[in-house]
Structure formats: structure tokens, C-alpha cells
Design a protein around this nucleic acid. Structure first.
Length: 467
DNA sequence: ATAGGGTTAG
């Protein structure tokens, strides 16, 4: 089972495998040193010390409770700030705003630009542009003079929540005030919003504007553009941007560039291009990391190239590159798609054996894998298994369960699962409805389809309407 | 300010 043997049997493999061999030891050491594995959930449990966890959790709960009432003006700074961090980090925008309200009433409170910037970005991510706008107003009325990064965050909040016009308006406003001249961060955030909204027409415009104003692109700017084109399947445009970056002379590609580019080619099945860019980047001195290998495994798996998938896995093992939860999830998903249930189960066992904790995504892939091969009887067992762990059943998981029964035509069980989903406080989304509608359609259940379509519209109105 | 795992359809 030598890697070289695989390489010589299949010519293209060699060009890809051999550069890896040379470089892995360094990369492996680096990855371990930089704690990549830990962040990936490789370690069983995060190594926070217990006293901190207890203190924080109690404080957060306490603060969140108090933030509802208007009375408390004398809380411990640290508790409030930690609670705020926690809420922002997990995107709980409603409780973050409540805690922020509490924070503003503390006698020790002084407004900070950073806090505003983080809140604004969070509101953008949660698609709450109105909230972002009023937070900005509150800030002004507090007499706080916004800083450049607060203004940039407002651009991001509008952009990420889909209000591109407002984002551009804010940018124009910034250009007229000398203290808030947009910088490379401002433009990069705006470019990333344009990419997410598929407004690629705006990218050349923004780049021209930048060069006119003397704002130079950074690696991040280029990476953002490359990723935008890559995700949209615009691979030619992606390569053009990559060439521009390489020819710019001002910034060098990094590991983000590498993973973005090979991921884009891998996802679209262009394995040859993926491999040649892989070695190209290596020649430029960029070392692969765990994520790189995850991308390779996934790409080979999607392309049905089992030997190469296996080769990368063996390779990681040999070089002490620890697989992460993500690695296993990818492998399990690929074997499930291929209909290779034995391998799928083998890797699920081996994941647990290595002390890695399956998460909701793992179970989702198992359900899809079983359902693809017609082993529906395994699904209740999985649900029971999850209930014995601290993994939360989530909407996506139920979507895959509902899809499994919908595809097999077990309408009754599908509906039972829909009830169970709501019982477990998982909110159905448009995919849930689309999945069920399909199942009803196949059986010609017209009334049930109409009923669900009404429910779906109601849901849309709830989301789009004023909050 | 950027990459890297999941659910529907086509």
C-alpha cells in the first residue's frame, strides 16, 4: 500500500502525491504547534478550565436574566462583558442587544468603538439591518464619535444582510468625511457582500475605485474575490483574479488562497486542475494544512476516486496529521453517497474509537447514507443514539430524516417526524417544506401540497416583515 | 475583512 504504487498505476496521481511527501513533516509540526487540531474539535473537550466555565456560565445566565428588567445598575463589569462576548460569539443577537442595554446602564460604562463594531457585524450576520441602523443612531445620540471601523462595520451590516444599496450609500457618505476615508477593510467587506449576493458586476467597479483612491488590495481582498468566483462556479474569472494577485507584486498567496482555489476546482470535479494547482502552490512555498487534506478527500470522494481518497487518508496517518471531526464527517458522507455502508459504518466506529465526538452533521450524513441504500430501519436507532448524547437534534438533521421517509414514500412516518421535529423545538425552514411538498407531489396528494405552500408563505412573511 | 463538513430541488 505504498503511495508511490498508487501514483505509478495512475499517472496523474504521481504529480500530486510526490510534492506532498516532501513537505508534510514540516506542515504536520506546524499544524500541531499552531493548535489547528484543537480548534477543529480534534480534542475531546475544549480545554477551558472548569472554574472559568462555571463562573462564566453562571454569570451569563444571571446577566441574561437581569438584562430583561430595567433595574440593575451595579453589576460586575467582567460578568456583563463576558456575557456580551458570549452572546455575540454565538450570534444570539437578541440577547446580545439586551445585555448591551444593561451594559449601557452601568455606572462604570463608557462607550467603546470596538463594542459597537462587533455588535454591528453580528447584526449583519443575523440579517438585522434595521437593528444595525438604530444601534448606529443610538451611538450618535450617546455623543460617541464613530471611528473608521464602526463605519466599516455598518457597511458590513448592510451588505451582509442584503441591503447593498444602503451599504454603498454608507460608503459614499464615508468618502465625504475626511476622518472616515474608506480603507482596504471597508472595500474588502463590501466586495465580500457583493460576492455573497452574486453582484459580480460591482467588483471591477470597486477595484477601479480603490485604485483611484490609492487604496491597495491586500491578500484578503484577493482571497475574497477568488472565493466569490470559485463558489459561484466562475472558474475562469477566478483564475483571472488569481493571476492578477500573483502579478500584482504587492501580495503573495497564502494557505487561504491555496485551499480556496483547490476547493473550487475539487467541488466542480476538475481534479486535474486541482492537482496541478496543488503542486503549483507548493512550489510557491505554501504548506498544506489539515483543511487542505479535508478538501482533497472530499473532492476525490465526490469524484468517486476512492484510491486517491484512501491515499490522502493513509498519508495523513503516516505523517501524524490528526484527522478532525470534519475529516471524518467528510469521509462518512462520501461513503454514504457512494452507497458503501460498510465503509461508512467502519469510519463512524473508528471516529468514536479515536475519541472524536460525532456531531449533528455526522448523524445527518449517516441518515442520508442509510436512506440512499434503503436501510430506513436504521434511522430510529440513530435518533435514539443521539438522545443518549448531548448532541442537539437540529433542523437540518430533521430535514434529512424527513427527506429519507419522503423519498421512500412513507408519508405517515414522515409526518410523525415532522411532529417530533416541532416537539424538539426545531423550527422548520423552507427546505423542510420543500422536501415534504415533493413527497406529497409524488403521491399526488394535492391538498396537502397546497396546505404546506400556504404555511411556507406565512413563514416568508414572518421573516421578511418588520420585526 | 478571507478558506475547510450537513439537509431540498434542478
Amino acid at each position: 500500500m505504498e503511495l508511490g504504487a498508487i501514483g505509478s498505476a495512475k499517472p496523474p496521481a504521481f504529480s500530486f502525491i510526490s510534492p506532498i511527501i516532501v513537505s508534510i513533516p514540516i506542515a504536520a509540526r506546524k499544524a500541531r504547534r499552531s493548535g489547528v487540531a484543537r480548534r477543529e474539535g480534534f480534542v475531546r473537550e475544549p480545554k477551558k478550565d472548569l472554574s472559568r466555565i462555571l463562573r462564566t456560565e453562571a454569570a451569563v445566565l444571571g446577566v441574561e436574566r437581569k438584562s430583561g428588567s430595567g433595574k440593575h445598575r451595579n453589576l460586575w463589569p467582567r460578568a456583563v462583558l463576558e456575557a456580551l462576548d458570549d452572546a455575540i460569539a454565538s450570534n444570539r443577537w437578541e440577547s446580545a442587544l439586551k445585555i448591551f442595554g444593561l451594559l449601557r446602564r452601568q455606572h462604570w460604562y463608557t462607550p467603546k468603538g470596538q463594542t459597537y463594531a462587533r455588535l454591528l457585524m453580528m447584526l449583519g450576520k443575523s440579517r438585522q439591518p434595521d437593528m444595525a441602523a438604530s444601534l448606529f443612531q443610538i451611538m450618535i445620540s450617546e455623543g460617541f464619535k464613530p471611528t473608521l471601523d464602526v463605519y466599516t462595520s455598518l457597511v458590513g451590516a448592510y451588505g451582509h444582510s442584503g441591503l447593498l444599496d444602503k451599504a454603498f450609500e454608507t460608503l459614499d457618505e464615508m468618502k465625504t468625511i475626511s476622518d472616515y476615508k474608506p480603507d482596504v477593510y471597508t472595500y474588502t467587506i463590501l466586495i465580500s457582500s457583493c460576492c455573497k449576493l452574486h453582484r459580480f458586476d460591482q467588483i471591477p467597479t470597486l477595484l477601479r475605485e480603490m485604485s483611484y483612491l490609492g487604496v491597495e488590495c491586500s491578500v484578503v481582498t484577493y482571497n475574497t474575490i477568488i472565493d466569490g468566483y470559485g463558489k459561484a462556479g466562475k472558474l475562469e474569472e477566478m483564475e483571472n483574479s488569481l493571476s492578477e494577485m500573483l502579478e500584482s507584486g504587492s501580495c503573495l498567496p497564502d494557505i487561504f488562497t491555496m485551499n480556496t482555489v483547490i476547493g473550487a476546482y475539487g467541488k466542480s470535479g476538475e481534479i486535474d486542475k486541482m492537482e496541478s494547482w496543488y503542486s503549483e502552490f507548493q512550489h510557491m512555498g505554501i504548506e498544506p494544512d489539515v483543511n487542505t487534506f479535508n478538501i482533497l478527500i472530499r473532492s476525490y470522494g465526490l469524484a468517486g476516486m476512492y484510491e486517491k481518497m484512501d491515499a490522502v487518508m493513509k498519508f495523513m496517518e503516516k505523517r501524524f496529521f490528526s484527522p478532525t471531526v470534519v475529516t471524518f464527517n467528510i469521509i462518512i458522507d462520501c461513503f454514504g453517497r457512494m452507497g458503501n455502508i460498510e465503509k461508512m459504518e467502519h469510519f463512524f466506529r473508528s471516529m468514536k474509537y479515536q475519541g472524536l465526538k460525532p456531531n449533528s452533521i455526522t448523524y445527518c450524513s449517516l441518515v442520508s447514507g442509510y436512506s440512499k441504500s434503503g436501510f430506513l430501519e436504521k434511522i430510529p436507532l440513530i435518533i435514539r443514539q443521539i438522545e443518549n448524547t448531548d448532541v442537539d437534534l437540529d433542523t437540518t438533521f430533521f430535514n434529512s430524516v424527513i427527506n429519507a421517509y419522503g423519498q421512500s414514500g412513507d408519508i405517515i412516518i414522515m409526518e410523525e417526524m415532522f411532529s417530533l421535529m416541532k416537539e424538539k423545538k426545531c423550527i422548520p425552514d423552507r427546505i423542510t417544506f420543500a422536501t415534504m411538498i415533493m413527497a406529497y407531489c409524488k403521491r399526488g396528494m394535492v391538498e396537502a401540497v397546497q396546505e404546506l405552500e400556504i404555511k411556507m408563505h406565512q413563514m416568508d412573511e414572518k421573516v421578511l416583515g418588520p420585526s
